[in-house]
């Protein structure tokens, strides 16, 4: 097996203890917290205490914590994420499968749009340093990074929906509408998600491009008599894009975090909304299931970044990657 294959395999094996650690951490966090899930979904006062006790027994909440955790992990190893306490007692995996598509679609569109805007803008900014465009981009990116995304969402709702009536406030009916009609529901959430990402990406793209423009190989490419376009795109851009891999990966890792608030505001039926509901209802299996799956996703993304780095830039060795990670 190639060294790259061995490296990937080793990293994948290392994710197993990590995912165990993650589940243990979330499990302890959830059970350390005061309060009781049964109390959260049986909220009426005057319910027979024996009914509560029975419900706790049925959910296995009367067992000692180590037993509960061992049981949870036992099920997890067989690919069983358990059944939700609320949500009509649907299996957690079914719930996640039903919601994950909406989140991937929304976040994928936003991320792709952000990259499509930020990369050309970063290049232009770097090649025309201190021009009007460059200064505007710098100021715009500071604004994009400082604007609270939920506030931006509220302002857009106020202006585009309430005032102008151009767009629907929230996404009710998103799942059933035919595609052309569905685009209307995407506009505001995509703007809200893409704006800070563009701001974040463009700064890295600009500084990466500036760094590359200063390199000796750019001068020698120009000295060889290559046209400025070829020098910029064939020699410059390809090198400047390497650090963007990391930045995009870091952004990918935070996707579900951003989704929680934005999906709540726009009533987007995705994973973020699911996990938020689960948290407020203390639906332990759903919280654990979603964090476990999102954790696996984050870890796989970080492996992918490291591998891509080595593939794209032969100057970086796997050994370097390993020591850099610590």
């Amino acid at each position: 097996m190639s060294s790259l294959g061995a490296y990937i395999l080793r990293r994948l094996l290392l994710t197993i203890p990590l995912l165990f650690g993650l589940s243990l951490f979330m499990f302890v966090l959830i059970h350390l917290a005061p309060g009781d899930p049964v109390r959260a979904f049986v909220s009426q006062p005057g319910v027979d205490p024996s009914f509560i006790a029975q419900a706790r027994h049925n959910l296995g909440l009367d067992q000692p914590l180590p037993v509960q955790y061992a049981r949870y992990v036992g099920h997890l190893l067989r690919g069983d994420f358990g059944t939700a306490y609320t949500f009509n007692s649907t299996p957690v995996l079914t719930l996640i499968k039903a919601r994950v598509g909406a989140t991937i679609l929304l976040q994928g569109v936003s991320l792709a749009l952000a990259l499509l805007i930020a990369i050309p803008l970063g290049i232009l900014s770097a090649t025309r340093q201190y021009s009007f465009l460059d200064n505007t981009t710098t100021i715009g990116s500071f604004i994009g990074l400082a604007i609270p995304n939920f506030w931006l969402a509220l302002l857009l709702q106020l202006y585009l929906s309430v005032k102008l009536g151009w767009l629907p406030t929230i996404s009710t009916g998103e799942a059933t509408a035919p595609l052309p009609g569905r685009i209307r529901y995407f506009v505001m959430p995509v703007i809200v998600l893409a704006f800070p990402s563009v701001a974040y990406f463009v700064r890295f793209m600009r500084s990466a491009m500036l760094e590359v423009l200063r390199q000796d190989y750019m001068t020698s490419a120009r000295a060889k008599g290559l046209s400025p376009r070829v020098v910029l795109y064939r020699h410059g851009l390809r090198n400047a894009l390497v650090p963007m891999i990391t930045v995009t990966g870091l952004q990918l890792a935070q996707i579900l975090g951003g989704a929680v608030i934005i999906e709540q505001i726009f009533a987007w039926p995705g994973l973020g909304q699911l996990v938020y509901q689960a948290i407020t209802q203390r639906d332990y299996p759903v919280i654990l299931g979603v964090t476990e799956i999102s954790g696996a996703f984050v870890i796989v993304v970080s492996i992918l970044i490291d591998v891509l780095y080595v593939v794209v830039d032969p100057r970086i060795s796997l050994a370097q990657q390993a020591t850099a990670r610590g």
């Binding site: 650690g21 979330m26 935070q254 996707i255 975090g257 996990v275 938020y276 964090t291 954790g295």
Partner: peptide
């Protein structure tokens, strides 16, 4: 590693 595997806002909201 474990803490960074959970998006921070999600962890924050849960806690």
């Amino acid at each position: 590693d474990i803490l960074l595997a959970i998006p921070q806002i999600l962890l924050l909201i849960a806690a």
